[in-house]
Nucleic acid binder design. Structure first.
Lengths: 326, 326
DNA sequence: CTGAAAGCGCTAACAG
DNA sequence: CTGTTAGCGCTTTCAG
């Protein structure tokens, strides 16, 4: 039932090489070409990408590792990467690892022998360095990672200085005269710790006490802030490493009668479009997702196609985007 | 440089079939096995998934077509589909079509000869029916589509009755005594039109005038509602076909001094977790993304593995999830 | 411009 | 349990 190039050649009364040439837009005599076209149309023949891939040693496919595509940060990254790479004829396999090591391992094993390269989004994937066996799977393909560095042959790191981003934002509040600034940390990975570090550093320099709250629920900003308000009635600043948490914080503060942007400033992280949905709109640290994702896609493409071995890290700086909440 | 199964066989002093058997966990004499393992470890050999795919006529990969992975609805769908399919050993290629026909065509052409099946999320992909040439590409692979039906050999449609969802929600407000209910429509595709239809139907039955506003910006709910308020000072209900728009509406209403949930009710659509970020929290129509996505994944898997040809549509009903805004 | 033949890396009979 | 052989569907020399 399934038609292949042999069938086409036979029925078009020519050789498979000629059909192959036709398929690849090489010179074929018009009459032969016409016969081939007719047969192809008749059977609705489509060449097998897999067989092509075997010869070309490439399926023109890359994998993008994220924690959870439902989180705006990852969705944005995946969107820009796919957009950029699709232009160059690459398909994007999405790997929702949920940050679980077993899941990461499974995806790597399945995907590494099928893709031309991998992009890891987020420092959590640094964990892979602890497992040489897993690393071995990706030792021969080009790899890009944001906010990390993998010990493989060809790894291009792309850094966005989250820590400095938070540090600057904290400074900004301090300079505005805020003294009682709390930080809400989401999850416990390297990236989250670094961000918290930026906050602590700025507070320390100003001789203010650091005050860190934790949540592991992306939508847990509301509840954690309710606690925070009870603990600390004089709160005048809240910073979080995730926009969504900061938006939850705003809701909690407003519901407690604390005017955000006036009595208390709130700053988020990512500067996702969700900032606009908040009331007041959320001032946030823009961590350059679009820029860094496009750079990741470009770098990977270069590494794949030009055997590029430039593994110098690329560095982006955050930028505070001021809106109503601070 | 690149090691293949021949190299392994030679160095382990055995045949490729034996190596192949070893790789596929079939019986191999312990001593032989040991030699093979050593050589494999020495060269860090990984079998080529592409070559395997050529033999198996499958790469265990599916494609998921969405409009834009950054939209919560699509991100959720993609997440659940990938989660379910990954358990069964399938990889998920994501195709961000932006709803553009040229992009849809390009993705289909590239992907159709490489994947085992395709899931289309959303009625917009019904457009494909207008192009027999494109349809031909996917005539031989199993296809699942939500809120649509494609004219190909094997297509499983999964419907979620959006129209009824909006109809019921409108009824709900009417029964609460709301009379001046406006609807904000996002985009112009079949799905959007059907939703608006549900609203009109309910209003008509109650003998109230329908009042529809439009926006093409997912984050445009705020601005459109500002206009709406100017046009209609007695507004007491706002319904939208997208949560994010409804959240923008809430912000505009509150900023205009109209108490949401009291003076005016607001209802969104999707019941995404963003409803929790709104203040007041957003009452919304749950369109069963998780259920329908998991069903899509299951159906596709059945169609792929069991040559399943049951193309009876699967139907899900929406459910109004009441929170603070209505 | 075209055809024969080799090869991409693996699996699956088949015969031992 | 193992090796030989023939594919899977395509591209690519290399002669002609």
């Amino acid at each position: 039932m399934k038609i292949n190039i042999y069938d086409i050649a036979k029925e078009a009364d020519t050789s498979i090489s000629t059909v192959s040439r036709y398929l690849n837009n090489k010179n074929v005599r018009p009459e032969t070409k016409k016969r081939i076209e007719e047969v192809i149309a008749k059977y609705n023949y489509k060449p097998s990408a897999i067989a092509k891939g075997l010869v070309a040693h490439s399926l023109k496919t890359v994998a993008v590792f994220v924690v959870d595509i439902r989180m705006p940060h990852y969705a944005n990254a995946a969107y820009y990467i796919d957009k950029k790479l699709a232009i160059n004829g690459y398909r994007t396999i999405i790997c929702n690892t949920r940050g679980e090591l077993t899941s990461i391992v499974k995806y790597i094993e399945e995907v590494s022998s099928q893709v031309d390269g991998i992009i890891f989004i987020g420092s959590i994937f640094n964990e892979i360095n602890r497992f040489p066996d897993i690393l071995a799977n990706i030792n021969n393909i080009p790899v890009v990672i944001t906010n990390g560095k993998l010990d493989v042959n060809r790894c291009k790191p792309i850094y966005v200085d989250d820590q400095k981003g938070i540090y600057d934002a904290t400074k900004y509040l301090i300079n505005k005269g805020r003294k009682n600034i709390a930080y809400i940390q989401y999850s416990n990975n390297t990236s989250a710790l670094k961000k918290a570090e930026g906050y602590k550093q700025a507070m320390q320099e100003a001789n203010y006490a650091a005050n860190i709250y934790h949540t592991n629920d992306l939508f847990g900003g509301y509840e954690v802030t309710q606690k925070l308000i009870i603990d600390n009635k004089n709160i005048d600043g809240v910073i979080s490493g995730e926009d969504l948490i900061a938006i939850g914080a705003i809701r909690a503060l407003e519901n407690a009668g604390i005017k955000v942007g006036k009595d208390c400033d709130v700053i988020g992280f990512n500067d996702s479009r969700y900032c606009e949905l908040s009331n007041p709109t959320l001032t946030a640290i823009d961590n350059k997702i679009e820029e860094s994702s496009l750079a990741a896609a470009d770098s990977l493409k270069d590494m794949i196609e030009n055997e590029e071995t430039d593994c110098e890290p690329l560095i982006f700086n955050c930028e505070l985007k001021i809106k109503e909440s601070a």
